[in-house]
């Protein structure tokens, strides 16, 4: 157990030093480890302690082990504190959003769970164990503060004329991964930076549906140029967290089958599939 956590930690280390050199799958794996919100402080700590031996390892193990339960109290605190300060109108809106997010999360879990059952059936027939299942559970972002922040960002994006036009002009079944904007999946674990990038890219794509104006086209181009290559790299590397599992192809096909009849164009994975359905409830 401790052995495992230590490895995990080292992975996180490596990710900081070899970011650009390690292969995509390793990178995204490390990255995923580095994420869970608590992180910035941890990273700084890592910077100065990393040469030390066992002692530091223990302290790390502590903060690392805590990550799932750790986020819960922290999330409840700030949110309600903010709520109390705000006016009643905002409090009720926050409350409404929080309940919405919890409801979405239950739906999402049910969906994931349903998908996992199918996946497990597939796997037992081929003899491997359910390691991927537990992984899927771990990948769900449960920190309420994070979910609320993300939901707010999504709401901003959806509360636009462009979005209204987009959903009207391109019906769900016509949307193609990589071509059409796709709302980022708030329930996946992502680093803050990666998430913000996804939101940014999503919004940029949505701008293509801005109501026509004379310089509308230029606007879009400007936005794209601003982005720069690094941003794009960042985001794309972050996606294939699942593709590094050996059973990826099987998982893919079962997922697309079990979740929706949509055709899935190869790579883009079950995350995106589930997300489509999860998001549809919140629209």
């Amino acid at each position: 157990m401790s052995e495992w956590t230590r490895d995990r930690r080292r992975d996180a280390h490596r990710s900081q030093h070899d970011e650009r050199r390690s292969g995509p799958s390793q990178w995204s794996h490390c990255r995923k480890r580095g994420i869970d919100g608590s992180l910035r402080a941890n990273r700084e700590a890592e910077g100065c302690d990393r040469e030390n031996g066992r002692h530091t390892d223990n302290s790390y193990r502590h903060s690392d082990n805590r990550h799932s339960s750790f986020t819960t109290p922290e999330s409840a605190g700030p949110v309600s504190r903010c709520g109390r300060q705000a006016d009643w109108g905002s409090q009720v809106e926050d409350d409404e959003m929080r309940r919405g997010v919890h409801r979405d999360m239950q739906r999402y879990r049910r969906r994931i769970l349903g998908a996992e059952v199918t996946q497990r059936e597939r796997k037992t027939s081929s003899g491997s164990s359910g390691s991927c299942d537990s992984r899927e559970g771990e990948n769900i972002e449960t920190d309420e503060a994070v979910l609320l922040r993300r939901q707010k960002q999504i709401n901003y994006g959806k509360n636009t004329l462009a979005y209204d036009r987009y959903i009207k002009e391109v019906p769900k079944h016509m949307r193609q991964p990589g071509v059409h904007p796709k709302t980022p999946n708030k329930f996946r674990k992502y680093s803050r930076r990666s998430w913000d990038q996804q939101i940014k890219l999503w919004k940029v794509k949505l701008h293509a549906w801005d109501p026509p104006t004379e310089d509308g086209r230029d606007n879009l181009l400007d936005n794209i140029e601003e982005l720069g290559l690094d941003d794009v790299m960042d985001i794309e590397l972050d996606f294939p967290t699942l593709s590094d599992s050996q059973n990826a192809p099987a998982a893919l096909s079962t997922h697309s089958l079990s979740l929706e009849g949509e055709d899935c164009l190869g790579t883009p994975v079950k995350i995106q599939k589930t997300e489509t359905t999860a998001e549809s409830d919140t629209v």
Partner: peptide, 13 residues
């Protein structure tokens, strides 16, 4: 929207 509710609640407050 929730303009009405927001204003109502804030006035109540």
């Amino acid at each position: 929207g929730n303009v009405f509710r927001r204003n109502l609640l804030n006035r109540l407050q």
